[in-house]
């Protein structure tokens, strides 16, 4: 019973981990992309549509990642190429992604697909309760791999150093000969790919279904998680599991007949996010963790 609940918690967390890790890298390079929700929806509709056409959820996964990256490229074109305001462009991207995914997805409504299969790791999956960690699908395993990879690249490689330098002091990075806009464009594309994968996870694993606006605010939670994690990849995992835990807890509480209003219980995950954000900003860690030039436009001097 508890292992099944834990499994549901983990599955709920995976899309948050994927999207938040992508956004974390984008923000580390100094770009704030508020369009995560829109990119996720594009990933979801592409993931579902490609799977439906090709019959393979793995090709669908790639389709979702590609759609997310292409949507992000549009964002990159505006904020990096045309130096538009990042906040406004990001919000526009969310509205655009919501509308376009609904349009593309209209003929897909009501169809069913076979989602990603589960890989059971022999022996390890027999461990009581924690065995569920080894009864997941490919994308869930991959999400942990991507967090590890992101953490390694950001803090242990030269590329990561360049990304962080661009985010903290773009002028110096430029003076050293690094192309700030190119680095930022790559990170934006990576963020889009991750958001696309995250969106694709909904129809490929959580519910084999396409519905308009099916991300239902998960993109915004992912954005909050980046701050929550103070721009540290592994903390994203903790935050996502905590968030997923509260979400599932409220459903389980209702199932057990706890006498608390369902509206209050539905609010809990968001309340938890706000409390943690407040606690963090009091400690001053948010300021210390944030990339110094987050959200600032950089125009290379000629």
């Amino acid at each position: 019973m508890y292992d099944e609940l834990l499994l549901t918690v983990l599955l709920t967390s995976v899309p948050l981990i994927l999207a938040a890790t992508g956004e974390l890298v984008v923000e580390r390079s100094g770009v704030l992309n508020l369009g995560v929700e829109g990119m996720m929806l594009m990933g979801a509709v592409a993931g579902f549509g490609v799977t439906s056409l090709s019959g393979s959820p793995y090709i669908g996964m790639l389709g979702g990642a590609t759609a997310g990256a292409l949507t992000a490229a549009l964002f990159g074109f505006f904020v990096l190429g045309l130096a538009t305001n990042q906040v406004a462009t990001g919000l526009a991207l969310t509205i655009f992604g919501t509308g376009l995914s609904g349009l593309i997805g209209a003929p897909l409504v009501g169809q069913a697909i076979d989602g990603l299969p589960v890989f059971i790791v022999p022996l390890l999956s027999d461990i009581p309760v924690l065995g569920v960690l080894f009864r997941l699908d490919l994308l869930a395993y991959l999400s942990i791999g991507l967090v590890a990879g992101t953490s390694f690249v950001l803090f242990r490689t030269r590329a990561g150093l360049v990304i962080r330098a661009v985010g903290d002091n773009a002028t110096s990075a430029h003076a050293l000969g690094y192309s700030v806009l190119k680095v930022r464009f790559y990170t934006v594309m990576f963020g889009g790919m991750m958001a696309g994968l995250s969106g694709a996870y909904l129809p490929l694993v959580l519910t084999p279904h396409w519905a308009e606006g099916m991300t239902a605010g998960r993109g915004w939670i992912a954005l909050a998680l980046v701050v929550f994690a103070s721009w540290q990849p592994w903390r994203v995992v903790g935050g996502a599991v905590l968030f997923g835990g509260v979400t599932i807890m409220q459903l389980a509480g209702q199932a057990r007949g706890w006498s608390v209003s369902p509206q209050f219980l539905s609010m809990l995950p968001y309340l938890a996010t706000i409390i943690v954000l407040v606690a963090m900003s009091r400690g001053g860690r948010a300021e210390r963790g944030a990339p110094a030039q987050l959200g600032r436009i950089f125009l290379p001097p000629r």
Partner: peptide
């Protein structure tokens, strides 16, 4: 109409027996 939430709730109910 929220397929993801409906399916989450169904999973939880099944886990609860």
């Amino acid at each position: 109409y929220d397929p993801v939430k409906e399916s989450d709730a169904a999973k939880v109910l099944i886990a609860e027996g």
